[in-house]
Design a binder for these strands. Structure first.
Length: 701
RNA sequence: GGCGCGGUAGCUCAGGUGGUUAGAGCGUUGGAUUCAUAACCCAAAGGUCGGGGGUUCAACUCCCCCCCGCGCUACCA
């Protein structure tokens, strides 16, 4: 166990407001952080939980270009969407802020100037590609060209995806901008760099020595890999018209690097929280506990007092920024504490493939909330039981269904329902008296306490999956207890004993209402309503005296409902459909060919013909041998369509055929013409037909 | 290419510093039961721990090689 801290500051990675966020993001950072924070609050700890939208960087204006709108409109749209989803999923931030806010610009500029004034930043002029037409410098990702190594014409400025080699934009042959298609030009530009290498020794001591044992292996390994490779100066500014202005003279058109300002967003959010509380406003803040006598300066201890435990919850793609770059910035700025831990998760895959919004292979938060209204806890549970804590994990809809039906409904909901229905039946919905405890009762009490203790230890160690299993174990103990004591049988002979059993069972429900709260907050609320109690602290829950005899309960109602096969099948279909749709949308439109004259066009003799026969060609996957009635003659045409059409499918169909194409031998057979096809973006072929039957030999022009 | 993290029962995952019959949940099969959303409870079957070498009295656990997946490679947020 770690030492006892005076206060806690928990951050969840700032979601980038360039699009919707999916359940992989939830599994990576948000659900674990929320569980942890709710647990700390339940322990009555002094905790602050911050998050907010990350609204700068080149991808925002690019997304605006794509959606044909402004950068401001993009961040307003996605900030609102993400904010709304987080609220509906029960994310209990004390503040969900925005990096576009004034206070954040000020905070970021202060820290930049702090480093600048101490002489910790170096200036460097370099040549970079510039797009004249879009009037912007191009990040490597936005330059494509021919790979110098494998001649792939679509290599990126940083890497060729065909041969895998690492490139720099200057190496590309015939570079062009992905924004406009223009050839970019080299242009000199000045930037401010943070010489990360100067902090190697310090960083090495801090991470490799001090945190060898308490950081997760994946996080530690990643950091070690970076440090061992040697750190390089990193530019902290960019040429962009969207972001936080570099607060220096002669820095027109320069903004802070988004990864410089984004983590500082945690600090700004904390400042904004205390400022709003001091002023009695609640624009972005939603304080989740009582803060007393607050002044605007009270944010400081959370970032500057060594008695504060700072934890960053992030996905593995963020490790380097939260473990290396941001800590160096904080260290260089001075006066700031460093994260005590960065329990980064790996990635969650979906139905056998990695999640990707742009490829359409994902479950977006807002879509889930629309499709499964009133079930945020089911998603929380399904994700919690399968968090990618030590390696990439896998989400499947079948698994989701099974977690809901076999665990939440069958074990958890069922236990509560059994206990409440029995109480209603035998004791008019009032908590019965408890008599003398038997061995089985004492065993139960011991196991409950033990399980709760294990659960707490798992949470202390950021082992959320294990903790969730312990939570469910408590409901299991309840079911087992009922099965062993069989109160429905005793009801005929020994009502006093039945009272004792149900009293204990109801105490388990009361305990669950506390234990479950970090994991399934909406369910915890329902539980409290069922048994008519207010929320209790974690430590007080370790008791079997939470409900007094004669305490009146509410009418039993179901906590969870089954999810049927057709609902799951519909989701799976939706997933494959959206993937297909995105594949089509993502295919680039083939550029127009060079202009031709009318003469060039009129040279082609295109007719409507009818396919008389079709047969597969031996040893060929693609070819069909067709016999076509062109109105003039019957001729043989070899057509590469066998992967798209079976012979039976096309016999008798009218098609467009180019009849004056020079004959050519294909697989030993002379082909006398070409069947015209429309090729869809995904490569599927369709016949080009007149919209009504016409006579064979009709001309096309 | 280099580096990092993984490859354990049908499925999803656990397995500090090597040591008796390799674990959990789900699924499957059998039993018991009827208070409960045909749910619960009990039990069983299921793995030569990616492949191949090596160290050791002993390796899923340490070392080497190979194969596969994922990530990072620093102007990709």
């Amino acid at each position: 166990m770690s030492k006892d801290f005076k206060r806690y500051l928990i951050t969840a990675a700032l979601p980038y407001a360039n699009g919707p966020k999916h359940i992989g993001h939830l599994a990576g950072a948000y659900i674990p952080s929320d569980v942890y924070v709710r647990y700390l609050r339940s322990l009555d700890k002094d905790v602050v939980f911050v998050c907010g939208s990350d609204e700068h960087g080149t991808a925002i204006p690019n997304q605006a270009l794509k959606e044909n709108t402004t950068s401001q409109a993009i961040i307003d749209k996605y900030d609102a969407q993400i904010r709304d989803c987080f609220k509906k999923l029960g994310m209990s931030f004390d503040i969900y802020h925005r990096t576009s806010e004034q206070i954040h610009h000020e905070t970021s500029q202060e820290i930049f100037l702090n480093l600048y004034n101490k002489g910790l930043l170096t200036e460097e002029v370099s040549e970079q590609y510039f797009d004249d037409k879009a009037n912007v410098f191009l990040a490597d990702r936005y330059i494509v060209g021919t790979c110098p190594k494998c001649a792939n014409p679509n290599a990126y400025g940083d890497q060729c995806e065909r041969c895998g080699s690492t490139l720099s934009p200057r190496e590309l042959i015939n570079p062009r901008s992905t924004l406009t298609g223009n050839s970019p030009v080299l242009k000199e530009t000045k930037h401010w760099y943070l010489p990360l290498q100067n902090y190697e020794g310090w960083l090495s001591d801090w991470i490799l020595k001090s945190h060898k044992d308490d950081w997760k292996v994946n996080v530690y390994g990643q950091c070690k890999s970076w440090i061992d490779a040697g750190l390089q100066p990193r530019a902290m500014t960019r040429d962009l018209d969207w972001g936080i202005k570099v607060p220096l003279p002669n820095a027109e058109g320069k903004v802070l690097y988004v990864w410089f300002d984004a983590p500082i967003g945690y600090i700004s959010a904390t400042r904004a929280l205390f400022k709003e509380m001091a002023e009695g406003k609640q624009k972005f803040s939603t304080p989740q506990r009582e803060f007393k006598n607050i002044t605007a300066a009270d944010w400081k201890p959370y970032w500057q007092d060594k008695e504060t435990k700072l934890i960053h919850f992030v996905g593995k793609d963020n490790i380097v920024f939260h473990c290396i770059i941001f800590p160096i910035i904080l260290h260089a700025a001075g006066d700031y504490i460093l994260p005590d831990n960065v329990p980064a998760n790996e990635f969650m895959n979906l139905e056998g493939d990695k999640m990707s919004t742009s490829r359409g292979w994902s479950i977006e938060m807002h879509e889930y909330l629309e499709d499964f209204p009133g079930k945020p806890d089911v998603l929380r549970y399904a994700l919690l039981t399968n968090l990618p804590e030590t390696k990439d994990s896998e989400f499947t809809w079948r698994d989701f269904q099974s977690k809901n039906n076999n665990e939440l409904v069958a074990i958890f909901g069922n236990f509560m329902n059994r206990a409440l229905v029995l109480t209603q039946k035998y004791f008019e919905n009032k908590v019965p008296n408890r008599g003398i405890l038997h061995q089985v009762d004492n065993d139960l009490v011991n196991q409950l306490g033990e399980t709760q203790a294990f659960l707490g230890m798992a949470l202390d160690g950021y082992r959320f999956r294990e903790a969730t299993a312990h939570m469910m174990q408590i409901a299991r103990l309840g079911n087992k207890y009922l099965a062993e004591t069989e109160p429905w049988k005793l009801a005929k002979t020994d009502m006093e004993r039945v009272g004792t059993i149900l009293n204990l069972s109801l105490q388990i429900i009361a305990r669950l209402s506390v234990i479950v709260e970090p994991f399934l907050p909406f369910t915890a609320q329902k539980l409290r309503k069922q048994i008519n109690i207010d929320s209790l602290s974690w430590s007080s829950a370790d008791s079997v005296n939470l409900l007094r005899p004669n305490h009146l309960l509410s009418e039993p109602s179901l906590l969870f409902e089954k999810i049927e096969d057709d609902v799951i099948n519909a989701q799976i279909k939706k997933l494959t459909d959206s993937k297909k749709e995105m594949e089509l949308a993502n295919q680039p439109v083939i550029p127009a060919k060079a202009e031709i004259s009318f003469d060039d066009f009129s040279k082609m003799d295109i007719r409507v013909g009818t396919i008389l026969s079709a047969e597969r060609v031996e040893k060929s996957k693609k070819l069909l041998k067709l016999n076509v009635d062109t109105g003039i003659d019957h001729r043989t045409v070899m057509s590469g369509i066998a992967e798209h059409f079976s012979p039976e499918q096309i016999i008798g169909k009218q098609v467009s055929i180019l009849i004056n194409l020079a004959p050519r031998k294909i697989m030993g057979v002379e082909s006398q013409g070409m069947i015209l096809m429309a090729e869809d973006k995904d490569g599927t072929l369709r016949l080009l037909q007149p919209n009504e039957i016409v006579s064979a030999g009709s001309t096309v022009s």
